[in-house]
Design a protein around this nucleic acid. Structure first.
Lengths: 229, 229
DNA sequence: ACAAAAGTGTTATTTCTACACCCATGC
DNA sequence: GCATGGGTGTAGAAATAACACTTTTGT
């Protein structure tokens, strides 16, 4: 006997993306104003539906790329939300992903076309459906992941200052960090390259730029190193 | 305009459960021998399909209860697996859950009826579809969760010895722990109650039994305590 | 009396935390 | 010359890791 599953229920499977960015001061998320019912005019995560021939990862990439034009974005699957009435139109399950993008480099035109807007995570409006719950979980996951894997760099330009990196971690972890302890720890990891180049925007003195050396990091991981902030 | 999603693809959504148990020596998982095609006769996680009127959590509980007769089981959603050809019969997405159960207390009859069997995680057979990947992820998640939240107790009888607890953590973390350091740490948490009762099975001398005091733990959490092994 | 597991504290090492002053530059 | 943010090291505290002998009791 071959089980063909024909008596089982089928459902709509959505993908919603929490898109994080960082603007030198605070952690932001990208939201769009819904232009269709239900909840037209309210703020929402970007989302779409899984197509039959796609994996969830591919769908998340497609949906994100459609809005931002971005390729090669750090994404991670977060959780699958399944409250029965979460979408009033029809039974829909949604798998949430979060993405980290470098605000400075993203495609502003596309974002404007979709009336998307960056919000400080502390000042985000109420979102539709269960998107607030998704955001909440995404922030927690980001906090854990960023203190355990060197993913923070995804939110910064390729070249960044120590101060930017510190501010980023302060924004993610929502706590102040000691400047000297932070720098000492980062340096102890030995995964940054200090450039002979300064960023002159932030101060008269200027501050040295650094780059993350992924190769060096990967090699260290093979030897048992773990990143831990 | 109301978007009724009618042009979107619908898919089958399965739920698969990684059921962990502990037998005083090693961490085990419960597997069943599939009695239908495809892959009939091979070992598999237990699973089923989400019904339209259920959440994933409820579906996972239903599926688990159906096999084990158990209620009140610790479960956590793990990840949603969506490779396009993961199930050769039909496009199926699967959300995996893992569960922790106390082997000694579970319903043996039901398990036998479904030709389920406990396997040491180190000796588990190759599983169908992407179930090996699920298992792998579940072990990693369990490792993290158990070192961060007091969920290990779910795998033990209500009354247990320090030595059982230590062996459990050694099995989960897959590393030897120092007996004195382990006991000192556990005691420093102050969330166990030492009973005036000994387990005499393990040695001539007998060893004291303990119980986890969930109330005390919850109160401590409110005051900022975090469990960390 | 001896085998087998239970129980028990101290010290050295490592990691973490707190903390303050000089530097370079543009105005 | 002064205001602004950048850069740098150390010492005390806390947490972790290493380590060995005595106890109990059934045989």
């Amino acid at each position: 006997m071959l089980n063909n599953y024909s008596t089982e229920d089928k459902v709509l499977l959505a993908v919603d993306c929490i898109i994080f960015g960082f603007d030198e001061e605070s952690l932001k998320i990208l939201l769009i104003k819904r232009d269709f019912e239900p909840e037209k005019g309210k703020w929402s995560l970007i989302g779409g539906f899984l197509k039959k021939e796609e994996t969830l990862d591919i769908a998340a990439i497609r949906i994100l790329n459609h809005l931002t034009g971005f390729q090669d974005i750090y994404m991670e699957q977060l959780y699958t939300f399944s409250k029965v009435d979460r979408d009033p139109v029809e039974r829909t399950i949604s798998t949430a992903y979060y993405a980290l993008i470098n605000i400075a480099e993203h495609d502003k035109e596309l974002i404007q076309k979709y009336s998307a807007k960056w919000f400080d995570i502390a000042e985000a409006p109420k979102l539709i459906f269960d998107h607030d719950e998704m955001l909440d979980k995404a922030i927690k996951r980001l906090r854990y992941r960023a203190s355990t894997k060197p993913i923070g760099f995804e939110l910064l330009p390729q070249k960044f200052t120590m101060r930017q990196l510190q501010k980023l971690y302060e924004a993610i972890l929502a706590e102040k960090l000691d400047k000297r302890n932070f720098i000492n720890r980062i340096n102890s990891f030995d995964v940054l390259v200090k450039l002979n180049e300064k960023d002159m925007k932030s101060s008269r003195k200027g501050s040295y730029l650094y780059m993350f050396d992924k190769n060096r990091y990967d090699k260290k991981v093979l030897n048992g190193f773990t990143f831990k902030i």
